[in-house]
């Protein structure tokens, strides 16, 4: 079975976020970068699938050269192959362009049965690349997956549990499929020292727009259809009111105020 996993490098949200307001992009200078937290679950699910069903994994990322770090971390966890989609033409891509580039990479990897990705990235926060990938590739679209029940590469079938509003939906789908995973699907493991040492010596291939056969008119800032027209700092919520007094009094005040909102039915 051939497994692909999409890993995105994101700024550490514990760090301060800076915007390049005139350019409408993130200013990544001096910010620490990490693997998107949801993608750690995707990677772990890929590793578990490989262990349980036999197969090989290619980890794919799109981003600047620095994004090799997330792929190196994946190598330390024993993925078989990696590829960094990296080209000046990709800078400023929107979700569709990102999904288009990743889809091209998945096609180039060849005969992929299942693609794992995270539910959402913590910087873009859009949570749509998985569904877009499925639509572009024509693969089964399995989002919000909290459990993979079984994968049968021979019969080309996968059964998953999706966490939807009000419960869990059990879905059976044909392979190939794109599976985007939520937190809680597994416990991501950490690389060990030997893995890290080995990974540091492996060369990470870089795929350009040309290598991928990507139409550069459709990607990057030039190709993106969504354009940022304004970045604003929303007005602060306004310092709230601290209710002071004895417990009895405070409880009286807060319950009155909440009842006055006429929301409680």
């Amino acid at each position: 079975m051939k497994i692909a996993v999409c890993l995105k490098q994101v700024p550490d949200t514990e760090a301060e976020v800076k915007w390049d307001i005139p350019k409408g992009t993130l200013s990544r200078d001096g910010m620490d970068s990490i693997t998107n937290p949801f993608d750690e679950f995707a990677l772990e699910e890929a590793l578990l699938t490989k262990e349980n069903y036999d197969g090989e994994i290619i980890a794919i990322s799109m981003g600047p050269e620095g994004a090799k770090d997330v792929l190196r971390n994946a190598l330390a966890l024993t993925v078989d192959e990696t590829a960094l989609c990296c080209d000046d033409a990709f800078a400023g891509s929107d979700t569709y362009a990102t999904a288009y580039v990743l889809a091209s990479a998945i096609k180039k990897a060849g005969d992929v049965d299942v693609v794992f990705c995270g539910k959402q990235s913590t910087d873009g926060n859009t949570g749509v690349v998985g569904a877009e990938l499925a639509a572009i590739l024509g693969f089964s679209q399995l989002t919000q997956v909290g459990k993979v029940r079984s994968i049968d590469a021979g019969a080309k079938k996968i059964v998953v549990e999706r966490a939807v509003e009000g419960g869990i939906e059990v879905v059976e789908a044909k392979l190939p499929a794109v599976v985007s995973v939520i937190k809680g699907i597994n416990e991501p493991r950490l690389p060990n020292l030997m893995g890290i040492r080995k990974a540091s010596k492996i060369d990470i291939p870089q795929w350009s727009a040309g290598d991928l056969g990507v139409d550069t008119g459709k990607v990057g800032a030039a190709g993106a259809s969504t354009k940022v027209v304004e970045i604003a700092v929303p007005p602060p919520r306004g310092a709230g009111e601290i209710l002071k007094g004895e417990l009895e009094e405070v409880a009286n005040m807060i319950t009155d105020k909440l009842i006055d909102l006429k929301v409680i039915k």
Partner: peptide, 20 residues
């Protein structure tokens, strides 16, 4: 979850992005 699934895949089929 439903609305996002439809919107994202429909936009991708039409060949463009969306605002989520």
């Amino acid at each position: 979850t439903m609305g996002t699934d439809v919107a994202a895949a429909a936009a991708a089929q039409l060949g463009f992005g969306l605002c989520t």
